[in-house]
Amino acid sequence: MIKLTKLTVQTRRSQELVDVTDEVERVVAESGVGEGLVYVMTSHTSSGVLVTEGLECLERDVVAHLERLAPDQGDYWHNRYLDIDGRLGFNAGAHLKGVISGYFAYFPISGGKIVKGGRQRVYFAEYDGPLSREYYVQVIGE
């Protein structure tokens, strides 16, 4: 079977990592899939999905390091009026953070549970918040 679930998350800061592991595990459990795989994907290009250890200090380090790599206030080509939006872009820093962190995560499913390291957590990464965001969880298996 293949099951796609759309979830929403209300981010509350300009940049933050939101731990969505419990939501992903719930979707997997509700799918009834015993053996298979699961993808978690954001549909927003100024956000990301990433996996790291579930510690607040590391969450802050990830956000701070991405800001060093792709600062919000950089000198970008994207700093211009975008007719498709009716407003200026100027959030290239957020898009670049999304490129660096990636837009999806993958895990195997075995015995009806996600196979992952004991310290691994799945995060929705907000780079241009606060916003109400959508992300998708697709479960494939039997």
């Binding site: 209300q10 509350r12 800061r13 300009s14 498709i84 939006d85 009716g86 407003r87 918040g129 606060p130 916003l131 109400s132």
Partner: peptide, 20 residues
């Protein structure tokens, strides 16, 4: 008419914008 093409957001996002 106003020409803003971004996605609509819950009222909470507006308030969080002010907070941030």
């Amino acid at each position: 008419v106003f020409y803003i093409r971004n996605r609509a957001q819950p009222l909470e996002t507006f308030l969080l914008e002010l907070d941030v």
